[in-house]
Write a protein that binds this DNA or RNA. Structure first.
Length: 151
DNA sequence: GCCAACGTTGGC
DNA sequence: GCCAACGTTGGC
């Protein structure tokens, strides 16, 4: 069992969208490091901090869980998709996704607030210039954040 | 295999 | 819209 922070642009898929749909495919990852986390490390039931990025209030907006192991991301084969990859093929898919299911909506735990806790100072998402859309979260970080959000 | 150019991410 | 950070591409 591991824990992850996964970024989504709320204009694309927000925590409310996930709450409404129950489960979504995490399509559109086009970074090898993030893909490898999904392929090699994610397990069913892993905890996910659902993070809203590229928006007016970036931060953690809810909780989710990995509900399906890595499988090919269908958008890579769709010429109409912005995530189309001509160098990928169904026989040799380059990009993968997992499914995540809704667990809870939380208050928005903003980036500014996250930065205030020394317990979270090591989080990858807080590092300057960080762009990785999926990052591992330690058990102590997970425990700290979920207890904050339970209040 | 180096590295400059380029593109993307994402906070501000 | 700006710009820092950094991953990717491609010429050599």
């Amino acid at each position: 069992m591991q824990y992850w922070l996964m970024k989504s642009e709320p204009d694309d898929v927000s925590i409310d969208d996930l709450a409404h749909r129950g489960e979504v495919g995490w399509y559109g990852v086009r970074n090898y490091q993030a893909r490898n986390f999904m392929r090699d490390a994610m397990q069913l039931g892993d905890g996910v901090l659902f993070y809203h990025s590229s928006c007016s209030e970036p931060g953690i907006a809810g909780l989710a869980a990995v509900s399906r192991l890595a499988y090919p991301d269908p958008t890579q084969f769709d010429p109409a998709s912005p995530y189309f990859d001509a160098k990928s093929s169904p026989g040799q898919p380059r990009w993968l996704q997992v499914d995540v299911r809704f667990v809870a909506r939380t208050r928005l735990l903003g980036l500014d607030e996250l930065r205030r806790y020394s317990e979270l100072a090591g989080m990858q998402v807080l590092r300057r210039g960080n762009r990785l859309s999926i990052t591992p979260v330690t058990e102590s970080e997970w425990t700290f954040i979920t207890s904050l959000l339970a209040c």
